[in-house]
């Protein structure tokens, strides 16, 4: 039950944070605040899910923030300029994300390049393409895109939140119950050993990157639907939030170990921290100092526990 007690530590951190912010600001323990947090996390939850898988295989993808921007730009151009419907835009966005993620994966696997470098190149290219496709202009889309981000039937939770939660759970099942999940872990733990034991090492890695790309595409749709617009500058620095959430959740940067459910706890911790700091009116420098400190503290706590 070691895994469950790891989960419990993160849960305790989360509850402590919610408690602390509630004491500092009486509006924090309220339905609107929890709704805010819930409806703001789908994008980060999806990307953290994909990032967990990529990091378990021993890779990393730094381009997700730019890809989020480019996929959002795709949604913006399709819906605002071409007047296409939401289903096509969803397909377009996921298509673009999958293509870029798949390319990153294929290049790093087939040419044996570090995914760190390939995705760094992709980070630049995707941002450039995002500006090119939108001509650097914010696109206002309006009601057509808002259905996924709006509260379900007058309730506080949006369809985006529900879908992302389902994907997180499905991702964990794939990781811990299915063959491909075992391959990912084996490849990350020791690629040579995996190869010798007959585990396919190339395709699962490419698949992991493509999966992250497609989840980033869906994340972009969710962000656009919450904002009603597409911002070509969206997602700058987002890769760091995603990696922070995954690392807070205890996934190893070296690969071979990790949990999607725990990454989701990392997402909740980061989102709660962000919302709480806004509500207590912390200054910008304080927000950064505190966020950084919490990330380091969470990783330290996790490392100590496992020693």
């Amino acid at each position: 039950m070691r895994r469950f007690s790891d989960f419990l530590i993160l849960f305790t951190v989360l509850v402590a944070m919610i408690g602390l912010f509630g004491l500092l600001r009486d509006t924090f323990w309220s339905v609107p605040t929890l709704g805010n947090i819930a409806n703001r996390i789908p994008a980060l939850a999806l990307v953290a899910t994909g990032m967990t898988v990529v990091m378990i295989t021993g890779g990393i993808d730094l381009s997700v923030g730019s890809v989020l921007g480019l996929c959002g730009a795709t949604v913006g151009v399709m819906m605002a300029d071409w007047q296409w419907g939401l289903p096509l835009a969803v397909l377009g966005s996921i298509g673009v994300g999958t293509a870029i993620g798949g390319t990153t994966g294929a290049l790093s696997v087939k040419l044996q390049l570090p995914s760190f470098i390939v995705s760094l190149g992709m980070l630049e290219m995707a941002r450039g393409l995002s500006f090119l496709t939108t001509n650097s202009q914010t696109k206002y889309i309006g009601a057509a895109v808002e259905t996924l981000g709006a509260p379900l039937g007058g309730w506080v939770i949006s369809p985006a939140f529900v879908i992302s939660l389902l994907i997180v759970v499905a991702g964990q099942v794939v990781l811990s119950q299915m063959a491909v999940g075992r391959y990912w872990i084996a490849i990350g733990a020791n690629r040579e050993a995996a190869l010798i034991s007959g585990v396919p090492v190339n395709r699962p890695r490419i698949l992991a990157h493509a999966l992250l790309g497609s989840l980033t595409g869906l994340a972009a749709v969710f962000n656009c639907s919450r904002l009603g617009s597409a911002d070509p500058n969206a997602g700058v620095g987002f890769e760091l939030s995603a990696i922070a959430a995954v690392v807070v959740g205890g996934t190893s940067l070296m690969g071979g170990y990790g949990s999607i459910m725990k990454s989701f706890m990392g997402v909740l911790i980061i989102a709660t921290l962000e919302a709480g700091l806004i509500q207590i009116g912390a200054s910008e420098p304080m927000k950064r100092v505190v966020t950084g400190a919490v990330i380091v503290a969470a990783v330290l706590a996790d490392t100590w526990r496992r020693k």
Binding site: N36, T138, V236, A275, Q279
Partner: peptide, 12 residues
């Protein structure tokens, strides 16, 4: 930024 401002506005 739009998304960051959205979070700040929601919190306020």
């Amino acid at each position: 930024e739009m998304e960051k401002a959205n979070g700040v506005a929601a919190g306020i």
